[in-house]
């Protein structure tokens, strides 16, 4: 990958951060806002991983090792949250 790719990714990262800042000023429902802002963060993270960390050039097995960790921690967050959901009505 060359400087052009890196610069483009960098521009997207900066741009989407600006977009995040614009979003929070909009009259959106809380749910839409949270989903889109966390979604944007996810996109940024994936871009950094794929291009800056060059994950896209590594064997899939490398991505799997990281992704399993990610999945496990999502499971932790989801089930721990579900376990108290009834208590808070969330």
């Amino acid at each position: 990958m060359g400087v052009v790719t890196y610069s483009a990714i960098f521009a997207i990262l900066i741009g989407s951060t600006v977009f995040e800042l614009i979003l929070i000023g909009q009259p959106l429902s809380q749910q839409v806002l949270i989903t889109s802002i966390i979604g944007l963060a996810g996109v940024k993270a994936v871009l950094v991983a794929l291009f800056f960390q060059h994950l896209k050039d590594e064997p899939k097995a490398i991505s799997s090792i990281v992704l399993f960790g990610f999945t496990a921690v999502i499971l932790l967050i989801t089930l721990s949250l579900l376990s108290i959901a009834a208590l808070h009505g969330v």
Partner: peptide
């Protein structure tokens, strides 16, 4: 490089847990 990637997987869990604790607490 392989070692660093494997280590980073543990970092994902470490910070995932901090964030998980944040979400858990924020829900309440």
């Amino acid at each position: 490089r392989m070692g660093v990637w494997v280590f980073l997987a543990s970092e994902v869990i470490l910070f995932g847990t901090f964030i998980g604790a944040y979400i858990f607490i924020r829900a309440g």
